[in-house]
Design a protein around this nucleic acid. Structure first.
Lengths: 187, 187
DNA sequence: CAATGTCCATACGGCACCGTATTTAATAAT
DNA sequence: ATTATTAAATACGGTGCCGTATGGACATTG
């Protein structure tokens, strides 16, 4: 698709992206060098020129995921200025709509058994929750209350992502927005 | 530990339990026949007497998980009678305290790439949410509102389980109870 | 148009695992 | 005690994967 079948030379990133695909579709233990090679229509001779070994690919994969998550996810939300409550919704929309976020669970499954990946997951979690916390503060909640609500909202969105993977983002977003109102109501 | 090192004969269940352990610790792709054999201090000659092949072990593993989840998890909660809101808390306590529930994420990670396991996960999800829904109804919420709150609460608990795996159950339970109050408040 | 560097193919040894076949040991039945 | 049955050990061929070594194709530069 992205690579016309005539592309001879591959880049390091080609491998990482290919690895990311099979990570999402089959889990980390199924991303193997020779299978990737076949998928990319080359031999592993290519791979071992670009990478020292499989472990180096996995490291690159972690970096790739981290970049995608930190770069793009919260950019739009930061741009958006206006009603603080609306910004919370906008952020949710961002997280859910992001193509990559859809694959959060797969990466988390990996991190579950790999401390290196785990470190980055924790990083991203902190980034997101602290961002959400700030939004609640802007919306007028106390610091403590903001943190509680941010965590609640974030955990909820995460859990929702695990259970309702098959539903469309539109449906999910609608439901989440409906429920998010509860979080933004000052009881 | 459970098996004194002198136990000669193994049962089918020994294998399933061993498989469940490595499933939790390393993921489904790491449960291999010969490694399990070594862990159980036998050879795979034993395994292939009890099972046709690896796939049959995985099927048994799914059944095992399903039984553990449906049998024990909600039993206590059903026993408990009294204030409906208190029953909700009691149920949460049950889900979180259950040793097996702790490993929900790992099993879900597997289900993510295996339709067979996925089916059972959906079953358990439905069981839990419908049970929670009934509790909210008992607590005086409308049918529609009950379902919404049940889903929120359940997704939240799930998401929480993914992010805060390392914390003690006591700490988690305390936090969750604190937050669950919000779900049980009629705004 | 040589020479050098970049990128990949091919060929190899080794390991871990799967599943089968066959044999041996332990337990139960007669 | 002999025989069956059950449970596990051993031995085997086959496959997929890893990483290395080496050579070839292509491009770039002088």
């Amino acid at each position: 698709m992205t690579d016309k079948s005539k592309n001879k030379r591959l880049t390091r990133e080609s491998w990482v992206k290919g690895a990311f695909n099979t990570l999402c579709e089959e889990g980390i233990d199924q991303v193997r060098v020779e299978r990737l090679a076949k998928k990319l229509n080359v031999t592993k001779g290519s791979f071992y020129w670009h990478f020292k070994d499989r472990s180096e690919l996995l490291d690159a994969l972690i970096e790739y995921w981290n970049d995608e998550m930190t770069k793009t996810v919260l950019e739009n939300a930061k741009m958006f200025h206006g009603d603080p409550v609306q910004r919370i919704f906008s952020t949710l929309r961002d997280i859910i709509s992001n193509e990559k976020t859809k694959h959060d669970p797969v990466f988390r499954a990996w991190a579950n058994h790999d401390p290196k990946a785990q470190k980055y997951v924790e990083k991203v979690d902190k980034l997101r929750t602290s961002f959400l916390t700030d939004l609640f503060v802007d919306a007028g909640f106390s610091a403590e209350e903001s943190e509680i609500r941010a965590r609640m909202l974030y955990y909820y969105v995460l859990g929702e992502a695990y259970v309702t993977k098959k539903e469309s983002r539109a449906v999910r977003l609608k439901r989440i927005e409906r429920k998010a109102e509860i979080f933004t109501n000052k009881s």
